[in-house]
Design a protein around this nucleic acid. Structure first.
Lengths: 274, 274
DNA sequence: TTGCTCCTCACGTCACGTGAGGTGGC
DNA sequence: TTGCTCCTCACGTCACGTGAGGTGGC
């Protein structure tokens, strides 16, 4: 029988860890001195410790390992758990590879622009939203005011109040100089009849949206679009739906140059698989 | 200004997390009601939160992120930290890929042998060991007794006691039927003169050894060698040095068939890079 | 006697999640 | 009034690491 220090040296597992395994019942020394509390191990316990290390290394938790050691579970169960770990490990390889890619994209961005961008892009999902909307073609985005007027008037007339931030959908696939196909939306709760121009519909939930926040007047929104566009291509995503522009905060009088304006831009995207 | 629940919905960050960020000073609401304790955020804080999420996603800890936000650190510093994360991420990709490989190897092993092997293989390192040794050619390993006798007699004569488990090095690169080049070693501490047959030398430290434990008589050691050999090839390692056979425990009379015998087998290996 | 080994608390880690028990706002 | 939102503790997580303060063994 050997003491914990020697057992630790042989196995290259720290004394603290061995004590922890004792405490949790994972690997108990064969004998504990009643008076000194000294733990005494047998050499043959090294193979149990090896089993623990090997299973830990495959990604099992200590609790799972404990159950393995106790029950000596069936081949089929073991196979099932390994399959699970395999899926998880594959997933983590992918995640880490993507993280690596994003770090690379950041580095390139810093080099090119000589500094950190004002815009940080994150991926998130949104739930579905019920909205009243008007769709139409306007020369350029800043001229969508007419559509908003139409929508607001309708809602006021029906005495329906929006329940969240209003937004615009941009339906064009490509960049255009003129004639944008836009749809202005107000989220609503109530049942509301449609008119010839006003539609009531549910914007479907989206799982992966690339999003960024623009703090400042609408006039400089273009910078945000540049940043997010670059991010999307640099990180190997692809746009798969209409862009959403969400007017989170438009203070007081709707002065286009108010700096306290906060707008979120969202692009439905998907990862380009290699 | 918005309440924590709405801020949470907009950002898709849990209320608990937002409170945690407040507590740690990472992201404080602009206003906290003195009486109710209600936290109130401004819409523009969403971009700060986005920055936090983006940096977290690159692998930074919340503490590091906090420092970034406070100091607004230089481009050079940022570049340096990103480079570091890049190295780490690359490392983790490799680690996870290797784990995936090991899981696959285990699965194949279970399929083939219809169950779990008695032998678990782990990778570990060992430090250098000073030994007295005798090297010679013997017909087969079980016949190395003569060498041991020679060594023991010399040590007894010099009144030197071994300070750890004795071991045998197998110097042949390939498997042989007959005539094995073996070296039997006793770890020692003292300064000991050499003789014509006895050498005193230091076995160098090895960083990566594939190891397994054999519980049982020497007669069945072959099973352990089979298991570890299979593991090494299945997991894409290559043997890069002489095998070490360590006699951790050989009870009482050195009966070759004693089942309480514990032996460790170690192969210096390196990963075959693709 | 000295140095080494071993022991048991108790607390920290990291980024939150999970209740319990209670209050404010519309 | 009711349901919803928000609050503050306090504790748990996972696999140990880090001391502090003290004792046993040769």
């Amino acid at each position: 029988m050997i003491r914990i220090g020697d057992f630790s040296k042989l196995s290259r597992v720290s004394v603290k860890t061995l004590r922890y395994y004792d405490e949790t019942g994972l690997l108990k020394p064969v004998y504990v001195d009643r008076f000194t509390g000294y733990r005494l191990y047998e050499y043959s316990q090294l193979s149990v410790l090896h089993r623990i290390l090997a299973l830990k290394d495959l990604g099992f938790s200590l609790e799972e390992i404990g159950r393995f050691l106790d029950d000596g579970l069936s081949v089929e169960q073991m196979r099932g758990m390994l399959k699970l770990r395999e899926t998880e490990a594959r997933q983590r390889v992918r995640e880490e590879a993507e993280r690596l890619e994003r770090i690379g994209a950041r580095l390139r961005q810093i080099e090119q622009e000589d500094g950190m961008s004002k815009y940080d892009v994150v991926i998130k999902g949104v739930e579905e939203i019920k909205v009243a909307s008007v769709r139409g073609v306007v020369p350029t985005p800043p001229e969508q005011g007419v559509l908003w007027q139409e929508l607001e008037e309708y809602l006021a007339q029906k005495q329906v109040r929006p329940i969240g931030a209003c937004l615009t959908l941009y339906h064009d696939d490509e960049y255009k100089e003129r004639d944008w196909d836009v749809e202005v939306c107000e989220p609503i709760d109530a049942d509301l009849g449609e008119s010839q121009r006003i539609r009531v519909r549910t914007l479907s939930a989206v799982e992966t949206l690339a999003c960024t926040i623009h703090n400042g007047p609408f006039a400089t929104l273009g910078e945000a679009y540049n940043a997010i566009g670059k991010w999307i291509t640099e990180n190997n995503y692809r746009i798969v739906g209409p862009c959403r522009e969400i007017y989170l905060h438009t203070p007081g009088d709707s002065n286009q140059h108010d700096p306290d304006t906060v707008t979120e831009i969202q692009f439905p995207v998907e990862k380009i698989s290699k």
